[in-house]
């Protein structure tokens, strides 16, 4: 199936399956970062489903677009989406965080589709900027995408990269901000606030696109029109909901890291499926 032929309904199905997979990983022995994974599922689904030029059966293909999950704690969402696209069998998600699994609490490089292991916040944007610069200087058409958490933007290293990428005019670089508004101790704006976030990026020389991070059509259209302006890197600030799709977790601080008991897993799944039925 060509990318353009993917319907919104198919993307919604994939996103739903990814959310079920995230919950299953949350129900594993160690639990997972459920809230920040669920907020990122739609972004990743549209990115892999319609935008990234990749070959899942040839992950190191030289012509690929690169993706860096800078918010490495959303690993469960990445695993679910990579499996959905054939990087590895979906059943492998059952090995999540088990001894010697390729699926750790934060991504390992040994997993097909992971170019850079992440987990320590504030690394991914520099890595992606380096990839983008290499492509620009060698005349290759590779693009670099990086998914950042909003709380992650409190790490100063991001702003080093933000300044440099604008100075270098890296229009093959796109940063996505999963703006779910939460970090572990509470709301971002009650911690060290990020607003006015769009103005901040803009003042650093980036093109800024703000969008609903759960509107599959909107995301598709934003991603299909990159770069937003020639000669500048683009940031897509995606307004999202932490725990999206699972009513008991939505916009809740406690969804940050959850180890779902069988009962809670059942409730979460029921809520997710009811939501999906109402949408479909």
């Amino acid at each position: 199936m060509t990318r353009l032929a993917v319907s919104t309904e198919q993307l919604a199905d994939r996103a739903h399956r990814a959310r079920e997979a995230v919950l299953a990983m949350g129900a594993s022995e160690h639990g997972t970062h459920v809230g920040g994974s669920l907020s990122a599922v739609d972004l990743l689904t549209v990115l892999y489903g319609t935008v990234l030029r990749v070959r899942p059966d040839e992950p190191d293909w030289a012509g690929r677009d690169w993706f860096v999950l800078s918010k490495g704690h959303a690993a469960a969402a990445l695993y679910a989406v990579l499996a959905e696209h054939g990087y590895f069998p979906p059943e492998e998600c059952r090995t999540y965080a088990q001894r010697h699994s390729r699926l750790a609490g934060h991504p390992l490089r040994r997993l097909p589709g992971v170019d850079f292991p992440t987990g320590s916040l504030g690394h991914g944007l520099s890595l992606a900027a380096g990839v983008a610069l290499a492509a620009a200087r060698t005349g290759r058409s590779n693009r670099a995408f990086v998914l950042l958490g909003d709380g992650e933007l409190q790490e100063g290293s991001n702003w080093e990269a933000i300044m440099a990428a604008a100075q270098l005019g890296l229009d093959n670089l796109t940063a996505l901000v999963d703006r779910n508004g939460w970090q572990i101790s509470g709301r971002t704006e009650e911690s060290v606030g990020l607003e006015p976030l769009a103005d901040r990026w803009r003042s650093f020389g980036w093109s800024v696109v703000e969008t609903d991070g759960h509107d599959l059509d909107a995301l598709r259209s934003v991603f299909g029109a990159l770069p937003a302006a020639p000669g500048r890197p683009t940031v897509v600030i995606a307004r999202t909901t932490k725990g999206r799709g699972v009513p008991i977790f939505e916009d809740r601080k406690k969804s940050h890291y959850v180890r779902l008991t069988p009962r809670l897993h059942e409730r979460a799944l029921a809520g997710l499926r009811a939501r999906r039925r109402n949408q479909a």
């Binding site: 504030g122 520099s126 900027a129 380096g130 610069l133 590779n142 990269a161």
Partner: peptide, 19 residues
């Protein structure tokens, strides 16, 4: 620029790209 964290991160990205 005067930004050593970014220096190494970007260098890693350049190296991963074959430079």
């Amino acid at each position: 620029g005067i930004a050593e964290a970014n220096l190494f991160g970007m260098s890693a990205g350049l190296a991963a790209s074959g430079l």
